[in-house]
Amino acid sequence: MLLDIRNLTIAKDTPTGRVNVLERVNLQINEGEIHTLVGESGSGKSLIARAIMGFLSDSWHIQADRLWFEEHDLLNLTAKQRRAIIGVDIAMIFQDAKSYLDPNLTISEQLQEAVLDQDLTGGFLARRKQRKERVVQLLHRVGIKEHSNMLESYPHELSEGAAQKIMIASAIAHRPKLLIADEPTSTMEPATRQQIYRLLAQFHARYGMSILLISQDLGAIMKETERLTMIYSGQVMESGNTRELLDQPHHPYTEALLNTSLYRQAQRPPRSRLPTLAGTEPSMQHLPIGCRLGPRCAYARPKCVQTPGFSKKRDRGFACHYPLNLEDDA
């Protein structure tokens, strides 16, 4: 197990009291696995990523039975220990890549920062030369052939796709074991998105790198995704093998999301109503008690005011008192 998160709860103090923005989240990622985390905006997906990276400020209260990366407990690291992991074994790329590049430095300068001293040998000048060579290699690896032009460019001169490639180049500088991709393609058109996904799939195949992909949309995930985790309003609804989960969703939330997908729509008679979930996502001030999907769930019964436990069945996990599609197993 590469990343092991058990019962992760992240809370924030608000004027009306402490709110569990993320509640008892479980997430496991194996070596060499592409894992996609799907949830609407505000569901806390990025919060998980930030908790792993250690980006959350003191105003967030993090609690977990386990937040482990390999044998490191990510909750109890000194700054120095964290730096030995973050940027080396765990790397991250972001949505809106351009804003993650320093506007006043050239691409070459920013990529050189990602090359760590420990990978270089020799004196100051020799290291400088190696660093520049490594940067050119990195650019070639992400498919940027005209490196001389790119090296002297500033971020504002790049397209969104090119900026994301630079971010990827910087992230893979140390062949990380885990790459967290936080909606890396949400602002791109489908062609560029496929390019970026192809690139990620390539590094996954070549280095055996695990990828935690965070996405808003079931329709825009990597086709190589092996496992899916569905998150709604800070609670994990369901997780499991991609194919099985999409074929036989156990959780009403997954079912509802699938109903809105293009594929299922094509099977319905023309002009029929799109079967969306009733209502809107709850705000952090008015979270439902128990299962947070409750008020919107077509299958909800009184018992749903108790938070359902996370039941595991073979490779699948779900948090629902009344799961769907379980008859065949019995």
Binding site: G54, I86, G87, V88, Y100, L101, D102, E113, S170
Partner: peptide, 14 residues
């Protein structure tokens, strides 16, 4: 700003 976050993501010290 986001580029400060990405600095930390690269593993740079404060």
């Amino acid at each position: 700003q986001n580029y400060i976050t990405s600095g930390y993501a690269k593993g740079l010290s404060i």
